[in-house]
């Protein structure tokens, strides 16, 4: 559907074009961000609740941007890589619209929207299919955690704006080797962040939940240092797509630590064809377990942020 209500900017990148001598050289010489964390270490996370005064509940989540190994390269903003920045507002519980049928429990609606400037390629103002997909996954994840019976005849809206999205691959790979198109790996980290930030905002809004839900991502990645044969796959937590040459598969879970339950799981890529898990080919279970470990990591941040907010409010 085309957007006829606004004067849209030209589709394409949101970053200024680069006319740099560095670009004339081989792609490999540009400093690709590399993973400096250990495979089982998550990115640093910033989470704060109560950022939007007009909403019943709100939260803001930010992830540390990836760093390049030798940061002496050109300091162009266009060459920088972004972290993840999400803001979530929760409106409700509020009355259902007049024409809605009677509902004995709360009606949950979720909206996930990329800001037009959130990614390197400009996004539209109307939600596209990937944004609707994220919304459906988020709704599935949250529905299992909210105690809907406590709020009859009411609706709650969870609205997430992605201010800075995760890139699907390193921008240097965009031109050079366009054939290896990454299968929207950035969406996985974005969804995980959405679940965590929505959970914080719902707790801030005072809507009854059975647990604090958090999202976690794990992936099997492959570098290409060895040119002859495929390098072995490696399991990492909280992958940043631009830091890896190739992502073989990724898994995101929405996890309830208190109950040891998963409300949403999404696995993408080649996984689980080997019956035995090996160094080279981790099994499906291993991938999921690692995603749960990542979710546990973000859960600790979440609980810390929530306790901080509550203590702040009590002190006033």
């Amino acid at each position: 559907m085309s957007d006829r209500r606004r004067v849209n900017g030209p589709s394409g990148g949101t970053h200024t074009p680069i006319f740099s001598k560095y670009l004339a050289k081989d792609v490999k010489e540009l400093n690709r961000p590399t993973r400096v964390r250990a495979p089982n270490v998550l990115r640093k996370m910033f989470l704060k609740t109560g950022v939007t005064p007009s909403a019943s509940g709100s939260a803001y989540l930010e992830m540390e941007p990836p760093r390049t190994r030798n940061a002496i390269g050109p300091g162009l903003a266009s060459l920088s890589t972004s972290g993840l920045k999400l803001t979530c507002t929760v409106h409700g519980p509020r009355p259902l619209p007049k024409n809605a049928p009677f509902s004995p429990h709360i009606i949950l609606t979720t909206h996930v929207k990329y800001a037009p400037f959130a990614t390197r390629k400009r996004r539209g103002y109307i939600r596209d299919s990937s944004e609707r997909d994220l919304g459906v996954h988020l709704e599935t994840a949250l529905r299992g955690v909210i105690i809907g019976d406590r709020w009859p005849k009411s609706g709650v809206e969870v609205i997430i704006t992605i201010l800075e999205g995760e890139e699907d691959q390193w921008w240097g790979d965009d031109r050079g080797r366009g054939s290896i198109s990454a299968g929207e790996w950035g969406m996985m980290s974005v969804l995980s962040g959405c679940i965590t930030v929505a959970s914080a905002a719902i707790a801030d809004a005072g809507i009854d939940c059975v647990d604090v839900i958090s999202g976690g991502v794990s992936a099997v990645v492959r570098g290409s240092e060895i040119s002859d044969r495929l390098s072995p796959g490696m399991l990492v937590l909280d992958p940043v797509p631009s830091e890896h040459e190739e992502i073989v598969s990724a898994c995101i879970v929405a996890y309830l630590p208190g109950r040891d339950e998963i409300t949403d799981i999404w696995v993408k890529g080649d996984i689980g064809y080997g019956s035995q898990s090996s160094e080279d080919n981790p099994s499906y279970e291993e991938l999921t377990d690692n995603a749960v470990q990542a979710a546990l990591g973000s859960h600790r941040v979440l609980v810390g942020a929530l306790k901080e907010t509550a203590a702040l409010k009590l002190a006033r």
Partner: peptide
């Protein structure tokens, strides 16, 4: 469970 409103006493929504 309230937003950081200045009035300080705003209660969360009750049905």
């Amino acid at each position: 469970s309230l937003t950081s409103a200045k009035d300080g006493g705003k209660k969360a929504e009750v049905l």
